[in-house]
Design a protein around this nucleic acid. Structure first.
Lengths: 204, 204
DNA sequence: GGGAAAAGTTTCCTATAGGAACATTGTGGC
DNA sequence: GCCACAATGTTCCTATAGGAAACTTTTCCC
């Protein structure tokens, strides 16, 4: 198959982007000044050499990606600007975009799940909000287990996450955790009231 | 061989070569495959050498920023993900399970992102909490865009989600939305105070 | 002004990024 | 199996990134 296959010259348009190579140094110097750091301080914080930073700021070198990454973190630079946002592109607007309101609802003895989106076929992640009913800690079901990964964020309440391979983890509103959901797991509300959590699950 | 490798300010140990390169190569290879390009085609389109691309994908080199920029444009990779993976460390066969507290922190003019997990290499979803700074709606940055899907849940505040293909969507605490993040998108806080949202992002 | 300390630049050298050519590993057809 | 040919990997060489230290400039303070 023939890709765009232009000759060297065909790549020219890209080459004209070169200017921002010239701008990179200025951006970094500005960001450093902004934070009131000297070359020495900034370089040390980013774990790079003072002279390296000087050369970058004066556009006397083409730094490695790794070096730039460290600088970005240190100087809290905004990433997108660095890369010229080129025109694009295809993006199928196929996947929908729905205010997640009423989704499916499933209730068990312990949990009360509400799906946060509809039309699951086009989505890979599965977000839902669950109410974990306040109940006696002693009565204990079997583990929940489903191949994949899961992220959990506590919206309100206090609970303990029990897992098969780790010690129980006490959590309160605002806490979050990420785990392999193939590992058995389960939650118990530890306050008198129900706890509410947001789960985002990704199947393998 | 090592350069003198002084102990520095304690920053040194993590810095070295191996850590994040692991992910970079995979991301790029995945993106190339996604577009159905061979090494030759992709390299030519990005105006870099075939062997260079091979080495990058196999994490046998630490590419320059310029090279990565060209690849990003060619493969339509999006930036934030690239900068997120930080140094780390060892994991074990089993995915770990960490109370997400300290994550990386990245601040921009509009957003203030805090990653909700560490050790990204073993995780497919990327959860983070962002504060959307209250500001004038008129000043508008370019779209945020990164191939994949994204789920967003509003923790507090009021905001409007602007997107490339749909009409703006007003959201308040408790609302959530699921969309294709390849579609340009961005949030603006509509109350006087900052809004806070939870994002879970899944790359293609 | 002088002169000391801090900030920034340039020099010098080694390790390595990047690319051309060569080598290897698929992958289909017969 | 064997052969062609495409795709990817590896080797080798040159240009250069990155850092330590030498050097220059700026900034204070007296």
């Amino acid at each position: 198959m023939e890709p765009v296959q232009s000759e060297e010259a065909g790549l020219a348009p890209e080459a004209s982007e070169a200017p921002d190579g010239q701008v990179l140094g200025k951006m970094i110097r500005d960001a450093r000044k902004e934070k009131g750091l000297t070359l020495e301080e900034a370089a040390k914080a980013a774990a790079i050499g003072r002279s390296t930073l000087s050369k970058i700021e004066n556009n006397q070198t083409r730094p490695s990606f790794e070096i730039i990454r460290r600088l970005m973190r240190t100087l809290e630079l905004e990433t997108p600007q660095l890369f010229v946002q080129s025109a694009q592109s295809s993006i199928s607007g196929r996947r929908d975009y729905t205010l997640a309101g009423r989704g499916e609802h499933q209730e068990t003895k312990t949990y009360d799940h509400e799906l946060l989106c509809t039309e699951l076929t086009s989505k890979r992640m599965l977000p839902y909000i669950s109410t974990i009913k306040a109940r006696d800690v002693t009565e204990y079901d079997s583990w929940v287990r489903h191949r994949g990964e899961e992220f959990m964020y506590v919206i309100r309440g206090d609970l303990v996450l029990y897992t098969e391979h780790y010690r129980p983890l006490a959590m309160s509103a605002g806490d979050s955790v990420y785990y392999d959901s193939g590992m058995g797991h389960g939650c118990v509300s530890t306050s008198d009231e129900d706890a509410q959590v947001l789960w985002v699950s990704l199947e393998i």
